[in-house]
Amino acid sequence: MSKRKPYQREMNNDWWLKNAFYSKYMIREGSSILITVYSLILAWGVFRLSQGEEAFNAWLSALQHPISIIFHLLVLLIALYHTITWFSLAPKAVDLYIKGKPLDAKFIVAGHYISFIIVTIFCLVLIML
């Protein structure tokens, strides 16, 4: 008779707290919560814009509330975290070969950061025009 009795370990719902790599993954996924709220604030801004100047200005001044400032500071940090994780994984989705050798991941990541800086500066200049 077989003495086999394989033991299946349970995976608890807090598995992502047990390993720093998993925790970072969850922060990355969790960034979407704050970014969702930010998108809703913008959607609300479009709504206020459609209601006229007074409504829109009320939306603008609501953004000056200290809670709003702190919130947006947090969103900025978490959005930057998303950017960093997104760029660091980007090479895995690239299937480019130069002279029969896979393109070095360093170049792909660097390319993303350079574009990011250009896009950011471009947007800042654009808004000032």
């Binding site: 947006h72 896009v119 800042l124």
Partner: peptide, 24 residues
Amino acid sequence: GMLTAFLTPVMVLVTGLLIPLGLI
């Protein structure tokens, strides 16, 4: 995700911080 990675930081910076704080 691509859009969020490239544009959300600068968008938050402008609409949520620079304009409300009067820096722009």
